[in-house]
């Protein structure tokens, strides 16, 4: 496998945005639920998958996962199987969804990629947390609905806006 300079730089910078959203707490959107906030830290990973392909999505996911493992926001993220493993798939799923639907309509493809990428994060993280015994399944399902759905909607909207915005500056520069 060969990594081009473009892939290295873009994964690095998207990873940086993900970390930045985490440490400034800008990546946590206050949602009126007991647990407090929905996260949008996985949006850079989705963008990596959609704009640059599965490899960038994967590497950005690794950076996001490593960060949430080393500076855990919730106790169960101290377990690498919950914090790192699920994040490997966000970018890959977003890429697959985007490339299989973009022939129909690129805006729809972005919406779906954002939604599926976000759902991958929610389902796998909570699934692993349940499987490893940190959360009972009833609690996981309710967190999934209360947090997963707002995250999914925000991710879908942000993915469209950001992908279109970035594609526009790219075409004008070329």
């Amino acid at each position: 496998m060969n990594l081009s300079v473009r892939k290295i730089v873009i994964s690095g910078i998207l990873g940086a945005i993900s970390i930045l959203l985490g440490i400034t707490r800008l990546g946590f959107i206050p949602v009126p639920t007991p647990a407090g906030h929905a996260t949008i830290m996985h949006i850079p990973v989705i963008l990596g998958g959609v704009l640059e392909g599965p490899v960038v999505g994967l590497i950005t996911g690794v950076i996001f996962g490593l960060f949430s493992f080393l500076q855990p926001g919730a106790p169960f993220f101290a377990d690498p199987l919950v914090s790192i493993f699920p994040r490997l798939f966000i970018g890959i799923v977003a890429y697959l969804v985007y490339y299989s639907t973009k022939k129909i309509n690129t805006i729809l493809a972005c919406v779906l990629a954002g939604a599926f990428g976000s759902a991958t994060n929610t389902v796998l993280v909570l699934g692993m947390a349940t499987w490893r015994g940190y959360l009972p399944s009833e609690v996981s399902v309710s967190i999934g609905l209360l947090h997963g759905l707002p995250e999914l909607v925000i991710a879908a909207i942000l993915t469209v806006i950001l992908v279109k915005g970035i594609q526009r500056i790219r075409t004008t520069e070329e």
Partner: peptide, 16 residues
Amino acid sequence: ELVMTMIIALRFVLIL
């Protein structure tokens, strides 16, 4: 290359 992405990420957190 993989470590390079991590170094870029850490460097750019402060710039961004």
